[in-house]
Amino acid sequence: MADGQSLEEPPKVKKAKGKTPTGPLFTLKKWNAVAMWSWDVECDTCAICRVQVMDACLRCQSDKKQEECIVVWGECNHSFHNCCMQLWIKQNNRCPLCQQEWTVQRFGS
C-alpha cells in the first residue's frame, strides 16, 4: 500500500504546487471514529433492581444470563430491565415510576 501511495504522489505534488494560492490547504482523507452505544433511556438505573440498565440485573448476573438481559420501554417512555419488569407486573401492572398502566412500547435490540 505504501508503494502505491508513493507512485501516485509525484503528479499530485505538482498539481498542489500550482493550486496552492487558490485550492484548499487541506483535504480530509480518512476518519476513524469511536462511538459508544447505550440504551436510549431517561434514567441509567433500573428503578426496580437499581442496577444500571447497561449491565444485566442482579438476578441475571447470578444466573449467568447477562447476554439475555434486555431493556424494555413502556408507553410512558420509562425503561427497565425486561426481566425485572416481568416480575413487577405480576404484582402491579403499573409503571413503578409514573404509576401509569404499563404497556410495552418497544424492546431493545
Partner: peptide, 11 residues
C-alpha cells in the same frame, strides 16, 4: 472521506 468507526457497548 474514507469513514470507519468502532461501535462499543458502554459498560
Amino acid at each position: 472521506i474514507s469513514f470507519s468507526t468502532l461501535v462499543l457497548q458502554s459498560g
